[in-house]
Every structure is written in C-alpha cells, then in structure tokens.
C-alpha cells in the first residue's frame, strides 16, 4: 500500500535456507518483473535518444516542458506540505483521542486509494466549478479553484492524504510517552513538549509520509485532468504533456519527458529508502 520500499527485517536464521523452490520462485519473479516492468521501461529509456543528446536536452528544456515540470513538482510540493500539516493532525487525533465516529474517519482516510482517480476527478471538478457546492461560495469571494493551478493542488491533496496519515499512525501509536512525561515533569509546557520532544521524534516518519505523498502526486493523471483546465504553461501537468506529445506524433518527445519523470521517480524511491532506514534507526 505505501509507496516506499518495504524495509525487510534481517533474517532470523543466519544459516542457509533449507527450503526448496528458490530457483522456481526467483526465476518466475525475475521473468515476470522483466517482462512486465523492466523491458518496457528499457524501451522507454532507449526511445528518445534517436534525437541525439542535444535533441533530448532541447526537448526537455523547452519552455512548455519546463513549465509543466514546474507545475507538477510545485503543485505536488504544496499539496504534500498541506498534507503534512493536516495529515499529521488527522493521524494525531486518530491515535491519541477518542471521539464519536473515529473508526469511520479512520476507514475513510483510505478513500483516495480505493476511489478510481477518474471518479475523484469528475467529483472534484463538479464540486469546485463555479456552480458547485464549494465553487459557488468561493466564487462569491472571488476565488477560483477549478481550471486553475489551485485545482491541481486540490486534486493532489486528495490523492496524497492517506500516505501521510498511514505512515504516521503506527509510529505515533508506538511513540514512547516516557519522554513526554519527563519533559512535562521538568516543567515544559505541552506546546514545548510537542515542539522539542514529539516533533523531532516523528520528523523522519513525517518526512517519509510527505515524500510518498509528493511522489504519488507528481505522476498523478486521472484526478487532475478533469479539474486542471490544462492550459499550456499554466495548468498543464507533465503526464498530460506526455499524452499531448504522443497525440502530436511526437513519440521521441513523449518518451523524453517520460524518461525525466522516470528518473525523478527512481531517485525519489532511492531517497525514500534511505529516509526509511533513517526513520527506523531513530525509532
């Protein structure tokens, strides 16, 4: 469910495994992985070099591509930041407090995982358009969400929320309360305890969750295109630009932008692994 690599605990037994089936299981794993993921991605990585390096570089530094990358990364960052704050509050409330409807809220947090992105897209755009439940009152205040970059952010907040909450929850539940009590005994206010004791302990986990929300948001397509407005240079996200380039017969260009996104997500995955190792060591 979560996006970052699974941290595998070290095997309990040091000796060689006496179990059969390694060859079969490993063989099938590598075959399937290669067939479905690695070979197709290799095809993608090879494709844009028909342009030559300078052509590739020109392709990915074109103003429209840069604007799309800026929007995708910028909006994802803003959405992840919003989620880090509100996701933290939701996780905190779910772990620490009791209130009516808590289980319902807890279950609902995963809605963005389960709801198809296209459904989320049309629902959000119906909600935030000028004649929608939220769009209309905001419109009276002169605020436009749908069909602007803010619409992109709203969709990405929706997509990213569960990553922050679900990453924080177990760690927050495990958090040792002794140090909180110690801080309180030493005369710290509750807020000081939070800022000086709780937050530093949770920081690596919070960062991991936020990074996951960010990584997921960068590649998101379905929920965004319905609400974004899709204006080049303004509200056109990178995945949409790939589709448009594909539709313009520009295969190499589409693949070039795709390679950039792939590289970024791979780097992110590695960074997340490191982050999780750090988080685990801090716990």
């Amino acid at each position: 469910m979560s996006l970052a690599a699974t941290a595998v605990p070290p095997p309990r037994i040091r000796s060689r495994s006496a179990l059969p089936g390694f060859g079969l299981a490993m063989g099938f794993t590598l075959f399937y992985l290669g067939l479905i993921v690695l070979i197709p991605l290799a095809a993608l990585i090879i494709r844009p070099w028909s342009l030559g390096f300078s052509g590739f570089w020109a392709e990915i530094t074109a103003p429209r591509v840069l604007a799309a990358l800026r929007l995708s990364f910028g909006a994802s960052a803003v959405a992840a930041a919003v989620n880090s704050v509100f996701g933290f509050i939701v996780a905190w409330v779910l772990v620490r407090y009791r209130f009516p409807g808590k289980r319902l809220i807890d279950a609902l947090v995963d809605l963005p995982f389960a709801l198809p992105t296209a459904v989320a897209g049309i629902a959000l755009s119906a909600l935030y358009a000028g004649n929608g439940w939220i769009g209309r009152p905001l419109g009276h205040l002169g605020i436009k969400i749908a069909y602007t970059p803010y619409g992109v952010i709203v969709a990405l907040i929706f997509i990213g929320l569960p990553f922050v909450v679900r990453t924080l929850q177990p760690v927050l539940a495990d958090l040792n309360r002794d140090s909180e009590e110690a801080a309180a005994t030493l005369g710290a206010t509750r807020f000081q305890t939070f800022r000086r004791v709780i937050l530093p302990m949770l920081a690596p986990t919070l960062l991991t969750g936020t990074a996951m929300a960010f990584a997921r948001a960068v590649g998101e397509y379905g929920s965004v295109i319905f609400i974004a407005g899709n204006l080049p240079m303004v509200s056109e996200i990178t995945p949409l630009l790939i589709i448009i380039k594909l539709q313009e017969y520009d295969y190499a260009g589409a693949a070039a932008v795709g390679v950039v996104m792939l590289a970024v997500s791979f780097i992110f995955l590695l960074a997340l692994n490191a982050l999780q190792a750090w988080a685990a060591s801090r716990r």
Binding site: L3, A5, R216, V218, G219, G258, L262, F268, L269
Partner: peptide, 10 residues
C-alpha cells in the same frame, strides 16, 4: 516498487 512511483501515463 518501481511501478508505484511511475506515472500511470508513462
């Protein structure tokens, strides 16, 4: 884990 972080469009 790669497919998780690859954009569906890609």
């Amino acid at each position: 884990d790669i497919p998780f972080s690859v954009s569906p469009v890609v």
